[in-house]
Write a protein that binds this DNA or RNA. Structure first.
Length: 231
DNA sequence: CGGGTTTGACCAGCGC
DNA sequence: GCGCTGGTCAAACCCG
């Protein structure tokens, strides 16, 4: 099983990825980081989403990335603040630069009560960003994570078509824009390299996939229950 | 020839 | 209102 090192896994707010998330999870692509053992990846994944490893999705590496994200999205935030050997897996402390509050997250989660202190936490789930003035614009759910990789585009099991590239301010590396090639799927992703550390790739997914990964035809013909959570 | 990439132009949101 | 910026479009180009 190939895998990627994921230092940050959070929903994106603004330009900056908030701090203090460290973790590993198996990545269904062609990345290889020998220094990271598969055991470590599974252990961390298990800590985040214990039920995942027992599910049929665990045997389907093409689904793991999305499944993990979906699992995280449905976890109580207390669980997400758990640690593995003292290393925080995910931090939900909201960055001052990240205005997306947990309260907004809860709006998109079914039957979820967030309590009274949601304004202090970063959302990790499906969320919508509303435009205050003018026509209301709904932003698709986003998830962004930072990966140490030589390749820009991680193989996540879906097929993407590049539709734009832009040099963003204060970065020397261009940001690439991709859309899922599936007809009825409006999922997009952005890929850029971190200015401070070009070895790190920041991938931001926006939206939910309405289908299974394209490289797994069997799954698309016989979708598992867990696929209902896929983005 | 079809599908993907490149790249300059265009548009909309936002801050001043 | 204006300028800056990020995001998208679409024509041209590339490649198998």
């Amino acid at each position: 099983m190939s895998q990627a090192m994921v230092n940050h896994g959070l929903f994106e707010g603004q330009d900056q990825v908030p701090t203090v998330q460290t973790g590993f999870f198996p990545f269904p692509g062609n990345l290889s980081f020998p220094s990271l053992g598969c055991h470590q990846s599974l252990k961390t994944l298990s800590a985040i989403a214990p039920s995942l490893l027992a599910s049929e999705a665990a045997s389907n590496t093409a689904n793991l990335t999305e499944t993990l994200l979906a699992s995280v999205a449905h976890k109580p935030r207390e669980d997400l603040n758990s640690t593995l050997g003292g290393i925080p897996l995910l931090s939900l402390q909201r960055s001052s630069l990240n205005p997306w509050a947990w309260g907004e997250v809860s709006d998109c989660l079914s039957n979820r009560s967030t309590g009274g202190d949601h304004e202090h936490h970063l959302g990790v789930s499906a969320m919508k960003m509303k435009r205050i003035k003018g026509r209301r614009k709904v932003r698709e759910p986003r998830f962004c994570f930072k990966t140490m990789s030589d390749v820009d585009v991680l193989d996540d099991g879906y097929k993407w078509r590049k539709y734009g590239q832009k040099v963003v301010k204060n970065t020397q590396h261009p940001r690439s824009y991709y859309r899922c090639t599936q007809d009825n799927c409006r999922v997009k992703k952005r890929v850029e390299r971190l200015a401070e550390d070009p070895r790190m790739v920041i991938t931001t997914y926006e939206g939910r996939h309405a289908h299974s990964p394209s490289n797994d035809l069997e799954d698309s013909q016989n979708p598992s229950q867990i696929n209902n959570f896929l983005w």
